[in-house]
Every structure is written in C-alpha cells, then in structure tokens.
Amino acid sequence: MVFCQQLGCEVVELNVQVDHVHLLVKVPPKLSISQLTGVLKGHTAIRLFTAFPVMRKKPYWGNHFWAKGYCVDTVGLNSEMIQKYVRFQEKEEQHQEQLQLEPLGGPSRKGR
C-alpha cells in the first residue's frame, strides 16, 4: 500500500473479507492511528469509487464506502500470533459459521 509507505508505515499482514478488513501495520510513534486510518480509508474509497463508478450509486453508509468506526489494538511480544490471526481469520470465521449450521449434538449419527 503506497499510502502506508508514504507515512513511514509497513503493512505486515492484510486480509480482506466480505464485510471487513484485518490489517496489521507497523506504525511509527510520530503518526497517530486515527490519522493513518483516515488516510487509508479516504484514499482507498476514492480509488474504489474511481475504478467502480457504479458503487457511487449504492447507498453505503450515507454514500461513504467505509463505516465510521474501526477497532485498533497494539501488538507487543505476540506479533507472530497476531499476524497468523490476521492471515487465517477468514478460514476461522468460515469454520465457526459451519459449526453454527450443525444441529445441536453435532453431526448426524444415522447409519451407526
């Protein structure tokens, strides 16, 4: 992501899902997280609306591509664990959805 590099940041891991994005970024201490988030959301929205003009006609969050909020956490010693979480989050969510679809008591035991 060019915007991150311009701000002195490094994208470590990125996972784009249907309704949200997981992003692990190394951010220099001089840059606020809200400033980084604003730049990323603003620039990506402009690029997406330019590439896909039909999206402007959809009523996303008051004609904005991104929702207003975001969730941020700091990473210390467990950076490898967080990186794996971001990388494999989509698979984990699919697994959790599948578990919710199974009837109570687990898979069917017919035929045993």
Rank of each mutant, 00 (worst) to 15 (best):
V18S: 14
K84F: 09
L24P: 12
L40F: 06
N15F: 11
F65V: 02
C71P: 05
G42P: 07
V16H: 06
S108C: 05
V39Q: 05
S32M: 08
V12C: 02
L24H: 07
Q100C: 03
E93Y: 13
K41V: 01
F52P: 07
L101G: 06
I46A: 11
S79C: 00
K41W: 14
W66C: 02
A51R: 15
T44S: 12
E90T: 06
W66S: 05
Y85C: 05
R47M: 06
E97M: 08
K58S: 08
L24M: 09
W61I: 01
Q17S: 02
D19T: 00
K110L: 11
A45P: 01
I33M: 13
I46L: 09
L14Y: 14
P59T: 15
P103G: 00
V39W: 01
D19E: 00
V86R: 12
M81H: 13
E10C: 00
H95I: 06
L104R: 10
L99D: 11
L48Y: 14
V75C: 00
Y85A: 01
K58I: 09
R109I: 12
A67H: 07
E102W: 14
Y60F: 15
K84V: 09
G105N: 03
G76A: 12
F3K: 14
S108Y: 07
M55C: 00
G106E: 00
H20K: 10
P29Y: 01
C4E: 15
L101C: 02
V54I: 06
K68D: 12
E97I: 03
Q96F: 15
Q17E: 05
F88M: 07
V75H: 02
R47D: 09
S79H: 00
A45S: 10
V21S: 12
W66A: 08
E90M: 08
V21E: 12
L104T: 13
I46V: 07
L23W: 08
L101M: 05
K84N: 09
E80S: 08
G106M: 11
T44K: 07
Q35T: 05
G62R: 02
F52T: 03
K91H: 15
V25Q: 04
E93R: 10
G38D: 00
G8K: 14
C4F: 11
P107W: 10
N63R: 10
K30E: 13
Q83R: 12
W66I: 08
T44H: 11
P103Q: 03
A45I: 04
L40R: 10
E10L: 06
R56G: 09
C71M: 04
W66L: 01
A67W: 01
V2A: 08
Q5E: 02
C9W: 06
Y85R: 14
V54Q: 01
P103I: 01
K30F: 11
T50W: 12
E93H: 14
H20F: 07
L99V: 06
K110V: 12
M1G: 01
G8S: 13
H95P: 02
P103F: 06
M55E: 15
D19A: 00
H20Q: 15
Q96N: 13
E97A: 03
E13G: 11
F65R: 06
Q5I: 06
N78D: 10
K110C: 09
V18C: 10
M1T: 05
E102I: 06
A67I: 14
G111R: 02
K57V: 03
L31W: 08
R109G: 14
Q35S: 09
W61C: 05
L101I: 02
A51Q: 15
F52D: 03
L14D: 04
E80Y: 07
C9H: 11
A45V: 04
V86D: 07
F52E: 08
